[in-house]
Design a protein around this nucleic acid. Structure first.
Lengths: 227, 227
DNA sequence: TAGATTGTTAATCGATTAACAATC
DNA sequence: TAGATTGTTAATCGATTAACAATC
């Protein structure tokens, strides 16, 4: 009987719920910045265009602090609970491979620390880039990846290479003991079962916009026709 | 009785299906590049780690060409159908506001054309940036946005500003006749019902990785304990 | 007290998966 | 013909929403 059952990150929540939690957290931050002390699920739901029961269920899954009828939730406490639950308060070391446009952009993005991720090192195979720094993050030769993985315990591997190199880089990362891959390349990665792969695919997002847009434009055309 | 019912983009598919279609398309491209002419849903499912019935349902929703028992689908035809369905073959004009790190990175990303999106112009309020170009895309004064929207028919507005400017930029875009917003800022945008908003939120992705990772690490710790 | 709000249990809705007939 | 594969209909699973009792 260990304490792990009580650990915030261990409680099971559905994927849709997990996806909404950072959105709540972000909204709570804006409200806290406005000086608000408490907030109701009703208000959160209205602001974010969600169902209020859903908001309550989501919040109660991630936070055991609970809210008070008539008052709502204590914003500061709720934020702390969400951050704990999402693992934002324990630092996860990451490395990034592929220092192109996107890679550089991620290296200089300062928002990751607030989510508990620290990019410890970057890798490339371009001699002009190796040895330089971006936002204080040193760029190493890709061949040093296994060595550096042994040096520090790296949790997350960020892949921002061209798709044809992605699988190779992924394999090297896994050899180095990395257990979670954040894949920004379009390549589909083959990995063993116990590895977490999260694909960041702009084409997927664009497809959704593109499709919705086309449907909307045509619907409007249709309306015009009947007038 | 118009032809719009037959239009690919008008067929209704579920959101999860729509999300998977570009993934199929990408995989088909890799197979076509290897010289394959046909492929079965079974093979696609195995390669992408999906259920094969799901793959068949998804494909039949987006393509009316159909497959042949024992042979599978004609790859080239299926790719064409998917591209049609996703609207990749009709050009959608876009503008981008906020030429910081991320904005610049998107401007120089060449993959959007393949998805039917063309970034026609970019906007910023920094005098040092106004008048310059990135990858052949000119950067204008943000104040010229309404004028340029009138000049060309812009479909998609990409927001890569700081969160505190996002709502303002969004309003200006909507005034300019834009109907779909691709929001890369963390701000939640208030929009009328008939506007498409797609939020690209790295914090959400990171939260999912972070949570899964924490759960996995703890599970493994747990296993170690019992040994 | 009355009413806003929470949190839970039950009902509905939608997506995934299984079973199966059709066909190349 | 036999077997791989498609596509559809039915069953299952999971998430959202509705209904309601509890409470501040």
């Amino acid at each position: 009987m260990n304490t792990k059952q009580n650990d915030p990150a261990n409680r099971e929540v559905s994927k849709p719920t997990l996806r909404r939690l950072p959105v709540y957290l972000n909204y709570l931050k804006t409200q806290a910045a406005l000086g608000k002390k408490t907030i109701s699920a009703t208000a959160v739901a209205a602001a974010l265009g969600l169902n209020e029961v859903q908001v309550r269920k989501d919040l109660s899954a991630a936070s055991k602090s609970g809210g008070r009828p008539k008052t709502g939730y204590n914003i500061v406490r709720l934020m702390a609970d969400l951050e704990d639950f999402l693992g934002y308060r324990s630092t996860k070391e990451a490395i990034l491979v592929g220092v192109g446009q996107l890679g550089s952009s991620l290296l200089s993005f300062s928002g990751f620390e607030a989510c508990g991720m620290r990019i410890a090192a970057a890798f490339d195979n371009d001699p002009n880039k190796i040895g330089t720094e971006i936002s204080g993050i040193r760029i190493y030769n890709i061949q040093d990846l296994p060595y550096i993985c042994k040096l520090i315990h790296v949790h997350i591997g960020i892949i921002t290479t061209k798709p044809d190199q992605a699988q190779n880089v992924c394999n090297t990362m896994l050899d180095g003991g990395i257990r979670a891959i954040w894949n920004f390349s379009t390549a589909h990665l083959e990995t063993p079962e116990n590895v977490i792969v999260h694909n960041e695919n702009l084409a997927v997002s664009l497809a959704m916009i593109s499709h919705d847009l086309e449907a909307m434009l045509q619907q409007e055309e249709g309306k015009d026709d009947t007038q």
